[in-house]
Design a protein around this nucleic acid. Structure first.
Lengths: 242, 242
DNA sequence: CGGAGTCTTGAGTATCTTCAATGAGCGTGG
DNA sequence: CCACGCTCATTGAAGATACTCAAGACTCCG
């Protein structure tokens, strides 16, 4: 009974891990899945796949952090999304048969499972849950993308940065011994800037300004938030599932 | 044979019209569908559904133009997407059972079909094509949203505006008798500005600047492009299916 | 200690915003 | 038919915001 609830929760939350999939497959498919899935380890800076490449299969992020980057014709690029544990990469191109629209670059050393296209399609065809889960992921990604889009359309850099911090506080934050919030930023300034569509310089100024006003302190990749209102005041989070 | 190809094309292009659906349903379901679908006419300015409202069903846009707008806490809003003939509205909340994330407002007098939630779910459960079509739409919307997002992250207002014009030229453009391109903008400046995340004032200046440089002329909602390179130079389109 | 990469700061400039005023277009009613 | 009010569009000016380039500081690592 409990197990059933947990399983349902996978579908609802869209957590698509190796283990979650295995649990939901019947015995025959489990074998197929186990044989098809390959672990791959990537170190920071590596590229999983590139924009324009043909889609060979789907990647499941088991640990680490992957950034989806898009380049435009002029060569400039933007970080569209961060992908972490329980999320899938490259599913889009897999479903509609197009080439990859973004470049997936490893921001933090990551462990991925790779399942080749035909094997995954075979499994998805046979397993209702897998299809549902995929759909849930697409919907969540769409919602996230629209939320970011809305933020970009309406908010200033400062607000967007604070929202981004709020997001990180969910996945990379913890309560300090001094009852202040401590966030460990997983990425460097340059990538933060790319995520916000700005330059490291502008970001630095925003940070300096926030610090001057108080309530938040930055030390390298450590962020100490003594005034949690700062993060909650400027809207809800804008990245990732939870 | 030809019919088969045409049908397939619906699935591929994601065109989800009343007629397209009807063609793909078997006789029993056709009856269900016909009984469930209701035509609704909306005049410009009306609201189809509002952000936060519970999802009652799905809307198919048969003609006209609907804008999806998102408000943030501070009350400012942005136009995230335009929806026209052959596209669906409210499918997202229908699938995952959440409330509407955006407000759908009618920009141009529109004819919609409304199919209530349970009827549509019943049909989707029984019809493979419908599910596939829905998935294709979500994927297309996600891609579109990410493209806009990337544009917002990297490009200046001027480029984004030209890209928007390129988009409109696809759906609302035609070759002039003078061999120049003529585009009929379906929406007013305020909405264009909301779509680009700027103010009508800034947009006006961009337009004035472009006109001064030549190659393009604006007269109210009419746009005459004598130098097509203007539209193609600054990247590909960023809105809508075709 | 040196060096590369990263982060911050400074100065000048370009872009965009805001508020307010003017102008163009349109339907209404005298 | 024209004056009136209305909405929409453009323009002006001042100020805020963010960009670029470049120089300086910090950190990590050899």
């Amino acid at each position: 009974m409990l197990k059933e609830i947990v399983k349902r929760d996978y579908a609802r939350s869209g957590l698509l891990t190796y283990k979650a999939i295995l649990e939901r497959l019947d015995k025959n498919d489990q074998k197929t899945f186990r044989e098809a899935a390959r672990t791959k380890l990537y170190s920071s800076g590596q590229v999983v796949f590139s924009q324009g490449q043909e889609c060979l299969g789907i990647y499941l992020v088991e640990s680490g952090l992957i950034g989806l980057r898009r380049f435009d014709e002029s060569g400039t690029s933007a970080l569209l999304r961060l992908t972490q544990n329980g999320e899938a990469l490259g599913y889009r191109s897999l479903i509609n048969g197009t080439s990859h629209k973004n470049t997936a670059e490893v921001l933090v050393e990551s462990k991925l499972y790779f399942i080749n296209k035909s094997a995954f399609q075979w499994l998805a065809q046979r397993n209702h849950w897998l299809r549902e889960c995929l759909l849930a992921i697409v919907l969540r990604d769409l919602d996230q993308s629209e939320t970011i889009c809305a933020g970009l359309l309406t908010s200033k850099l400062r607000s967007r940065f604070l929202r981004l911090m709020a997001t990180f506080s969910e996945s990379h934050g913890e309560l300090d011994e001094t009852a202040a919030f401590r966030i460990e930023l997983p990425i460097q300034r340059k990538d933060l800037a790319d995520l916000l569509g700005t330059s490291p310089a502008a970001l630095s100024r925003i940070i300096a300004g926030l610090q001057r006003e108080g309530g938040i302190r930055f030390m390298g990749r450590q962020v100490f938030v003594s005034d949690p209102y700062l993060l909650t005041s400027e809207a809800t989070s804008c990245l990732g599932p939870a």
